[in-house]
Design a protein around this nucleic acid. Structure first.
Lengths: 141, 141
DNA sequence: CCGCGCAAATAGACTTTGTCTGAATTATAA
DNA sequence: TTATAATTCAGACAAAGTCTATTTGCGCGG
């Protein structure tokens, strides 16, 4: 049984999670992990950079981008592509879909049980599906 | 009954389509429309710019971006957001979904009948849905 | 405890996609 | 014809993300 990825509270827990995924837990990576994994949320790279560097500089832009990519490749966060100008990193790893408000840029989770995909196309054998994303685009008025 | 938007062949047909959608058919807009509406395809702004300016300059970058946005707002093309670095403009206006190859960047249509969404969440009254996009992310190997 | 070697981090230049500005052109209307 | 408005344009600008060359700092053998 894996450590529950969300609601981690301590640096030690984040470090342990990283080790479980074969990621060396450096100071910077743990800082970024703290921000992402202490609650379920969607953050852009820019927002992570700001959050990490509250007050004084601690982690460089390059490292934030590298680390987010690394986390995504190791399945610790999910990249959500809904906005043409930035990627959101989603620390909610349960199966779910997204509701995107194109007026405000707000992104909300939709629990898996509220969406049912009853049919998907047959694909050739050499094609393997990485994800099926359902995005509801809406606006308030 | 509307003019069938795909497979338009002549400038006059494109101009007529634009007029139907309250868009003044300028030379540049018709050029761009010719490229988009003569067959169903997904093109990025960059690709439209290149296609329009075969050989000599005819339409500026600013106009291409303005026109694609204008066409999208008037429902003549559909913006497809699957790649974090660019928007695709889809001239296939029939209801359909997308298969995106994250290794090659290739984007394919999936006919509506191959996907069935059996359930969607209830949303508050002031929220109105603009689109429900299903994106299958896959890779070949 | 020292220093070697390597992974990781860094600053900042660079790239790409897209937006903005203000001037010039073209169309529209009186 | 004149003026009024809409459209186009070149090029400056902005934002997100990548790349490079250098530095940092940790793990490990002696």
């Amino acid at each position: 049984m894996n450590i529950k990825i969300n609601f981690l509270k301590t640096r030690a827990q984040v470090a342990s999670l990283l080790r479980q995924h074969d990621i060396t837990p450096t100071h910077q990576r743990v800082r970024i992990g703290e921000i992402l994994f202490t609650r379920m949320q969607h953050l852009s790279a820019e927002q992570v950079l700001l959050a990490v560097n509250q007050g004084h500089d601690e982690v460089s832009k390059a490292t934030v981008y590298n680390t987010l990519g690394l986390f995504a490749r190791h399945g610790l966060v999910r990249e959500v592509i809904v906005d043409p100008s930035k990627i959101f990193y989603d620390s909610n790893l349960t199966k779910h879909h997204h509701l995107y408000y194109s007026d405000s840029g707000e992104l909300q989770d939709i629990a898996d049980e509220h969406v049912e995909i009853a049919k998907l196309p047959e694909l050739p054998d050499d094609v393997h599906i990485e994800a099926v994303d359902v995005i509801i685009r809406a606006r308030r008025s």
